[in-house]
């Protein structure tokens, strides 16, 4: 990545972090985010490095821990925050919430709360591009837990059998909820599973946004050129618990493990690299200030947005609603028993 792209990557990573910090604050203070919220802080390098390898019109599918993914793909943060708050102006009009952010205007085809289920959908998007004669590729994000569900295997097999332009990006943060990967997989590499489907499987340092970008860019170029799918396993770490429960309980994880990973924070690493390469610290501080203002504006937008009106409960179900046929002038039967 050149300096400009690195600055872009930093801006997107900082956006994700500040956005999620703001969301956590709203949850903590009881200011209007209902339901469960899954925070991806710590994993921004994998997310941004991947999305920066895509064009705007390329497709991206997220999962339950995916506030950051549409932000990395270029979505406007105001409607995303409004969605978390269940507002009428939410990107999904308050119908999806935290686990179902989608912004089709930037190629974000949505997120699913069912682990692994987005994987075959990304395969279908890549298939669609082929049939329609475009060179769009599709990227599926998922966690390490998804590598053990059928959709992962069926999706990878389909993409390989049909030689589609799909990039499968596993954000391996070592835990499925609180269950350690080592306890649920005999093998120690998810990337190695690619060999079974005869596609490249690449392990990359998920904390190094440049390394992720390089690996995913190569996969995207291969896919776009008709070279087929790639599985990328980005080794990363989640700083927060599976979901926000009001306290930070690391569960079975040791504090030392978290602290160790924090020394390789993806934002800190990139910032240090930029400073080393001679970028003025004032420029980075300005970037931080700009992002803080953007996130504050997103929160203000969300909080000032109206709640959905009651009739919106019934909207968005059908693309082609079918009106009920009218009754004829029905006359009750003469001599009816009642």
């Amino acid at each position: 990545m050149d300096t400009d792209l690195q600055l872009d990557a930093l801006r997107r990573m900082v956006r994700i972090r500040r956005f999620e910090e703001a969301a956590m604050s709203i949850v903590r203070k009881g200011q209007g985010i209902a339901g469960s919220v899954h925070i991806c802080i710590g994993q921004e390098g994998a997310i941004v490095g991947s999305c920066l390898a895509l064009r705007r019109e390329d497709y991206m599918v997220g999962y339950h821990r995916s506030h950051g993914h549409p932000i990395a793909k270029g979505a406007d943060m105001g409607p995303l925050m409004a969605e978390l708050m269940g507002r009428a102006t939410g990107v999904c009009r308050g119908k999806g919430g935290s686990m179902h952010l989608a912004d089709f205007s930037v190629g974000s085809l949505g997120e699913t709360a069912i682990v692994g289920a987005g994987i075959p959908q990304a395969v279908g998007a890549a298939y669609s591009a082929r049939v329609r004669g475009t060179d769009q590729v599709a990227l599926a994000f998922f966690g390490d837990g998804a590598a053990n569900i059928g959709s992962f295997h069926e999706g990878l097999n389909l993409a390989a059998a049909w030689n589609l332009g799909v990039v499968f990006v596993c954000e391996n943060n070592l835990y499925a909820m609180s269950t350690a990967l080592a306890d649920t997989m005999a093998a120690d590499s998810i990337a190695a599973r690619a060999a079974a489907y005869r596609m490249p499987g690449i392990e990359v340092d998920g904390q190094d946004v440049g390394a992720v970008h390089e690996a995913v860019s190569a996969a995207v170029e291969r896919g776009r050129a008709g070279g087929g799918p790639t599985l990328v396993e980005a080794r990363t770490y989640r700083y927060r618990d599976h979901a926000e429960y009001g306290t930070l309980d690391l569960g079975h994880r040791a504090v030392e493990e978290l602290e160790q990973w924090r020394t390789r924070d993806p934002i800190d690493l990139l910032r240090a690299r930029l400073l080393d390469s001679g970028v003025d610290v004032a420029l980075l501080d300005q970037l931080d200030a700009d992002v803080a203002a953007e996130v504050a504006a997103a929160v203000t937008f969300a909080k000032r947005s109206p709640m959905p009106a009651p009739e919106e409960l019934y909207e968005d179900l059908w693309a082609t609603p079918i009106e009920p046929s009218p009754r004829r002038d029905a006359v009750p039967v003469a001599g009816a028993a009642r």
Binding site: V123, N157, L158
Partner: peptide, 16 residues
């Protein structure tokens, strides 16, 4: 079945 149904959904959401 699960895989190709998912693929059909991805294809349908993108123009097929």
């Amino acid at each position: 079945e699960e895989g190709f149904t998912g693929a059909a959904i991805g294809a349908a959401m993108t123009g097929l």
